[in-house]
Design a protein around this nucleic acid. Structure first.
Lengths: 195, 195
DNA sequence: GTCTATACGGCGATAGAC
DNA sequence: GTCTATCGCCGTATAGAC
């Protein structure tokens, strides 16, 4: 059972509510800095009630990872409807511009989670970098479709590296213009590239 | 007073010892996951004694930031002795290969600290990204020396982005070969570049 | 299913003997 | 300067009434 009805109007269930709050807070503050009390306050769900929906805090972390992975999958599915692989890759770079503000403030939601997860030896959030892997594999696929063979992998990794690199630098420099310029450069690279 | 003597032999003082432990542990586990007990155990200094050398945990964090900044400055000074700016930039990429193992395991010590610091609103570690800024400025200087004018800044940022991006991807994919390939690509980019 | 009160443990920090 | 013992807080998690 996932959603309740009230006066015939569909309402978001609390689990979704909590997850959405956790997602936002973790993006802004990181997993470790985000307390269950934070999530409770932000989602207006009482602290103790969280445990009805999630067994542990690590569970919430994993749910957020899963959420971001499915968000990425949706995006990729969307991009795949474009005709040429080059158009898809370019469209991907445009999503960076669309999320400019958040990226400069909080960094890339995929990479930051992945990096933080790598530092927690406890017993949790182990598959965070599978999200980034997903992105890399998608990029490689695009380059293969463009006619690349042995070096499609290298090009795909280069593409993703470029994206992640610019977010790191933009955040450190607190300068959204960095993203504009680097996306432009990345597009030029895509145009000039030859196999 | 910074170092003590024992039998005429110079010994590292405890502050340095603690700092070195903190540096290593924070690189491996992150600042938040690293407890004072960790540092005490690793450096074999009793927990309570840490407070003789550092007022708070945040102080330790800041000292580590300073340490990494001065390490970077030393490296840049070293590279500056090379004749051409292009040779300096290439030599910089080679330091990535030299630290391959650690980077794949723990990521870039500069970027990871910078990112984690950005998520801690508390009252500490505010100037972590000044280190990355230092690197960017140095890179820009190199491109200016190469004859670039208005777009030297963009090229410098692109260079650093490339470096930081490859470390993120290499860590997520847990694949040191990524670094080999991307460094190679970066060198080719430096050779083919024209102003 | 919902919510309050509270137990429990860990970590940063301090007191104070030596 | 060094080190042990311990305090106090905060964050996760649980008990249990409703």
């Amino acid at each position: 059972m996932c959603s309740t009805k009230f006066n015939g109007k569909k309402m978001v269930n609390k689990r979704e509510l909590l997850l959405k709050s956790a997602d936002e807070l973790i993006h802004a503050q990181g997993f470790q800095s985000t307390t269950l009390a934070d999530i409770a306050r932000h989602s207006k769900v009482p602290l103790g009630n969280i445990y009805y929906y999630f067994k542990t805090k690590a569970d919430i972390g994993n749910a957020v990872i899963q959420l971001r992975e499915s968000k990425l999958q949706d995006l990729l599915k969307q991009l795949d409807q474009l005709e040429t692989p080059k158009a898809r890759l370019k469209a991907m770079t445009e999503t960076i511009i669309a999320n400019k503000k958040d990226i400069v403030k909080y960094g890339c939601p995929i990479a930051s989670l992945s990096q933080e997860a790598g530092k927690i030896e406890d017993s949790m959030i182990k598959k965070a970098d599978s999200i980034l892997r997903l992105l890399v594999d998608w990029a490689i696929k695009q380059f293969k479709e463009m006619g690349f063979r042995q070096n499609a992998r290298m090009k795909g990794i280069q593409f993703v590296s470029h994206i992640e690199g610019m977010t790191v630098v933009a955040q450190a420099l607190k300068d959204p213009v960095v993203l504009d310029c680097q996306v432009k450069a990345l597009k030029i690279w895509l145009d000039d590239i030859k196999n």
